[in-house]
């Protein structure tokens, strides 16, 4: 069937979801904060995968939408209201507007030019954040963003509660993205990725579909940005810039571009690594480079696609061990 999911994959998904649900009660606060961050960056990476993996558009400026939402929500939450819906809607709305605007410029190009123009547009937002000190706090960033009040009597200050809140939002967003990539629109995006000229000859409005994908990707990056600023209570121009854009791009490639859930895995791996080796923080970029090279060498198509291969490898290895063991015991018995 078109876009159907192999049963084993689906089973794996259910397993991961169950593990994430249990984790909220099973691990300590530090690990839970780490997991929360992994989920947030996971959603961010999934939104980029819609562009890179499905539509074939390599953006090096995707942090612009993430950071714009984080700033917008952060400013409103810090200055105006402790409610959730207004700051959150404004944050996502700002990312969507930015994507509507930047998409008009960026989608005039392809390939490496697209990479360069999205990079330039992203750095433009960094410049804006640095300049508008009174609003954004400039290079110092925006601090003291309080956790929102959902208005349903669920306190989001405790780490565990915020974890479950994040898990719920990311799960819903992931479900929507999953529906999108399986829809006729999603199949068309992959068609555009593979062969734009033929899609055009077949009668598709290629530009419009790319534009919709671009804006959707910006919007979902915005959802991640809103979660990020509430999680972190702080946002700086770093969240908008090249380093963040490159990192999320690496999450997608590491997890597997065009797999949607792979980038979630890639984000989990990179966020965990970032915490574990944060003692040599100045080497982080070097380390990311090494991870990239390793990915390209060992799992070029990403961890998500490599998992079944490894599973098969492990199984045949186990089978081999069992056979040898049996042969030995057989010989021993004789």
């Amino acid at each position: 069937m078109i876009g159907s999911v192999p049963l084993r994959r689906a089973a794996l998904g259910v397993l991961v979801a169950a593990a994430l649900l249990v984790a909220g009660r099973a691990v300590d606060d530090f690990q839970l904060r780490l997991l929360t961050e992994a989920l947030i960056f996971g959603l961010f990476a999934m939104s980029l995968d819609l562009l890179l993996g499905y539509t074939g558009l390599p953006s090096l400026g995707h942090a612009a939408y993430f950071g714009t939402a984080a700033y917008t929500t952060g400013v409103i939450a810090a200055e105006a209201t402790s409610g959730f819906w207004l700051p959150a809607a404004a944050g996502v709305g700002a990312s969507v507007l930015l994507a509507l605007l930047f998409g008009l410029v960026a989608l005039r190009t392809r390939g490496v030019y697209f990479l360069m123009i999205t990079l330039a547009l992203g750095q433009l937002t960094v410049g804006l954040a640095l300049r508008n000190r009174s609003l954004t706090g400039g290079a110092d960033g925006l601090a003291g963003v309080p956790r929102p009040d959902l208005g349903v009597g669920w306190n989001l200050w405790p780490t565990q509660n915020f974890y479950y809140f994040t898990l719920a939002v990311v799960a819903v967003a992931a479900l929507v993205l999953w529906l999108v990539v399986r829809s006729p629109f999603g199949v068309a995006l992959r068609g555009i990725r593979d062969n734009e000229a033929r899609m055009d000859a077949l009668g598709y409005h290629v530009w419009l579909r790319r534009y919709v994908a671009f804006v959707l990707a910006g919007g979902f990056a915005g959802v991640a940005g809103v979660l990020f600023v509430y999680h972190n209570a702080f946002v700086s121009p770093d969240a908008l810039g090249l380093a963040t854009s490159a990192e999320v791009l690496l999450m997608v490639i590491l997890g597997g571009a065009g797999t949607l859930f792979g980038p979630l895995l890639g984000a989990g791996v990179l966020v965990t690594l970032n915490y574990t080796i944060s003692s040599f923080a100045e080497r982080w970029v070097l380390f990311l480079g090494a991870v990239y090279v390793l990915t390209v060498l060992v799992a070029r198509r990403g961890l998500w696609r490599a998992v079944p291969v490894w599973a098969r490898g492990t199984r045949s290895m186990l089978a081999g061990v069992v056979t040898i063991a049996r042969a030995r015991t057989g010989r021993g018995a004789r």
């Binding site: 078109i2 876009g3 929507v176 529906l179 999108v180 399986r182 829809s183 999603g186 009668g203 598709y204």
Partner: peptide, 14 residues
């Protein structure tokens, strides 16, 4: 390609 169904965003292709 020429079907309105191709604009469908949330319903699975299948």
């Amino acid at each position: 390609a020429l079907d309105r169904g191709s604009r469908s965003l949330l319903r699975p292709a299948s």
